[in-house]
Simulated scan of single mutants.
Amino acid sequence: MIQHHLILRVVTKLLVGTIIVFALYVQFHGDFSPGGGFQAGVIMAVAFIIYGIVFGLEKVKQVFPAWIVHKMVALGVLIYAGTGVVSMFLGYDYLDYGAFSPHHPTHGQHWGLLIVEFGVGVTVTGVMVAIYYAFAGRPPAISDEDW
């Protein structure tokens, strides 16, 4: 990696942490305001994509390996679908969040939404980073000298 653009590298390191904290805020505050799993997943993925653009694909893969990214895609879907299966095992309809707190269905709705939105966030983060890895990792069709 070429060691230039010191300011860009320092600012990126500062921004990545801030972006991740904001993504977590959007994730866990999404049922009270605009936002939720999809938006938080995209914001979280942006943190890793920016890191990869500035520091290179190999560096970001050291921080966030591709095997973890692929596992996240499946894990998020399992969390989402598993929430519905658990509600069915508890005698309710698929994704009926009242199953999580039968005596106070409003609390169950809150917990169910948090779990499902978390699953969506995990999946979207994994998919977006996997797409970045796929595009950034492919060899160029034409070399720089041929331009």
Results as ranks from 00 to 15, higher is better:
residue 58 E to C: 02
residue 50 I to N: 03
residue 53 I to F: 09
residue 58 E to N: 03
residue 53 I to W: 08
residue 72 M to S: 06
residue 38 F to N: 02
residue 77 V to T: 06
residue 66 A to H: 14
residue 37 G to F: 11
residue 88 M to E: 09
residue 64 F to K: 03
residue 79 I to G: 05
residue 59 K to Y: 09
residue 74 A to C: 11
residue 73 V to I: 15
residue 74 A to Y: 13
residue 45 A to H: 01
residue 54 V to S: 10
residue 58 E to A: 02
residue 79 I to K: 04
residue 51 Y to V: 01
residue 43 I to V: 01
residue 42 V to Y: 07
residue 37 G to I: 07
residue 83 T to G: 13
residue 92 Y to S: 07
residue 37 G to Y: 13
residue 50 I to K: 07
residue 81 A to M: 14
residue 40 A to R: 03
residue 92 Y to I: 15
residue 81 A to C: 11
residue 42 V to E: 09
residue 59 K to F: 06
residue 36 G to W: 11
residue 90 L to P: 00
residue 83 T to C: 14
residue 46 V to E: 03
residue 40 A to C: 03
residue 40 A to P: 00
residue 36 G to Q: 12
residue 84 G to E: 11
residue 62 Q to W: 10
residue 37 G to R: 13
residue 82 G to C: 08
residue 88 M to S: 06
residue 70 H to G: 12
residue 39 Q to E: 15
residue 38 F to A: 06
residue 61 K to C: 12
residue 68 I to A: 09
residue 39 Q to D: 12
residue 79 I to V: 13
residue 91 G to F: 15
residue 70 H to M: 14
residue 45 A to F: 03
residue 77 V to P: 02
residue 94 Y to K: 02
residue 66 A to L: 14
residue 76 G to T: 05
residue 95 L to I: 12
residue 77 V to A: 09
residue 85 V to P: 00
residue 95 L to D: 09
residue 69 V to C: 10
residue 49 I to F: 02
residue 76 G to S: 09
residue 87 S to V: 02
residue 39 Q to N: 10
residue 71 K to N: 06
residue 40 A to W: 08
residue 65 P to C: 09
residue 81 A to G: 06
residue 92 Y to H: 15
residue 36 G to I: 15
residue 60 V to M: 14
residue 90 L to Y: 04
residue 79 I to A: 09
residue 57 L to A: 11
residue 56 G to Y: 07
residue 83 T to M: 13
residue 69 V to Q: 14
residue 54 V to W: 13
residue 88 M to W: 08
residue 44 M to P: 03
residue 93 D to Y: 15
residue 75 L to V: 05
residue 39 Q to V: 08
residue 52 G to K: 07
residue 45 A to S: 00
residue 41 G to C: 10
residue 58 E to V: 02
residue 43 I to C: 09
residue 87 S to C: 06
residue 51 Y to N: 02
residue 94 Y to D: 01
residue 78 L to N: 07
residue 45 A to V: 00
residue 86 V to Q: 04
residue 87 S to G: 01
residue 85 V to H: 00
residue 78 L to W: 12
residue 49 I to M: 03
residue 43 I to Y: 06
residue 93 D to G: 00
residue 84 G to V: 03
residue 89 F to I: 07
residue 88 M to Q: 09
residue 81 A to K: 02
residue 64 F to C: 04
residue 55 F to E: 07
residue 90 L to E: 10
residue 70 H to C: 12
residue 64 F to H: 04
residue 65 P to L: 09
residue 89 F to G: 01
residue 81 A to R: 02
residue 61 K to M: 15
residue 85 V to F: 04
residue 79 I to D: 07
residue 79 I to E: 08
residue 81 A to N: 05
residue 49 I to V: 02
residue 48 F to P: 07
residue 56 G to A: 11
residue 61 K to T: 06
residue 75 L to A: 05
residue 73 V to P: 01
residue 83 T to N: 13
residue 45 A to E: 04
residue 49 I to P: 00
residue 79 I to F: 10
